[in-house]
Amino acid sequence: MNARLFALVFSLEARKLMSYRVDFWLNSVIGFAAHFSIVYFLWQAIFSESGSELIRGWSFEMMLLYYVLVILAGKLVRGAEHLGDIATDIYEGGLTRYIIYPTSYLAFKYAQHLGNVVPALVQLVLFATLYVLLLPMPEEAAITPASIAMAAVSIGLGNLLFYSFMAPLQSVAYWADNVWSLNVMFRFSSNLLGGAMLPLTLFPEWGQRVLDFLPFKHLYYVPVSVLIGTMGPAEWLRSLGVGLVWLLVIHLVFRAVWNRGKFVYTGVGI
C-alpha cells in the first residue's frame, strides 16, 4: 500500500469519527469524568482506610496521574478498538471487494485503525492540559522530553501490538459467525493484565513475575511508567526488546490464521 493512499484512509477515518461532534465531545468529556471520578474516589478510600501514605511506592497523587495517563494513552493504544469491520467483511462477504483492489487489505485496515488515534490525541492534549492546570503534579513524577519520547515509542509499539492481537481474533470470523465476544474477552483480560485497571506493581511478587513474561504490559503499563519516570531507560530498552519479540510472535500467529482462513472464505457471507 503506498503512503499516499495510507494517509488518505487514515485521514478519512479520523474525519468520520469527528463528524458526530456532539456525540464525540459528550462521550469524551463525560466518559473521562466518570472514569476519573471513580478512580479518584476508589483510591481516596483505599489510602484513607488503609492509613498508608504510600502503597507499594505509589502516593495518592502519583496514582491519579498514572490513571489519567492510562485512560488517555490507552485510547492511543486501542485506536479503533474493536476493528469490528474485519469480522463483518469476512462474514458478510465484503472482503471480496478488497481482493480486487490493488492494495493490501490489512494495511488498509491498519490505516483506519490509526485514523482512530487522532480523536484520542485531541483528548490527550486537552485533558492532560486540564490536569496540569487544575491538579498539582506529584513531586515523584519525572516527565521530561526524553521520557515523552520513550513513551511515544512505547505507545506506537502498544498500538501495533493491540492491532496484532485484535486482527487474529477478528479473523476467527472465517469459522465463527460472531466474534464480538472474543474482542470483549480480550479487552477485559488485557485491561487487568496490562495495567489499565491497576499499576502492575500492586500485584503480588509472583504475579508480577508472570506478567513480566506476558505481552499485555506493553499496552498500558510500560508506556505510562516510562512517561512518568517510574521506569528508567535501561529497563525500558529491555522491555522494548521483549515487546518487539511478542509483536513478531503474534504477527506470525495472525498470518497463519489469516492464510488458513482465506481457504475457507466463500465470499457470499454466512
Partner: peptide, 17 residues
C-alpha cells in the same frame, strides 16, 4: 477479572467503603 481486581486491592487495605 473483577474478582482478581478486588483481591489485589484487598492486599493493600483490609476495608473498602
Amino acid at each position: 477479572v473483577q474478582i482478581i481486581f478486588f483481591s489485589v486491592l484487598y492486599n493493600h487495605t483490609s476495608v473498602l467503603g
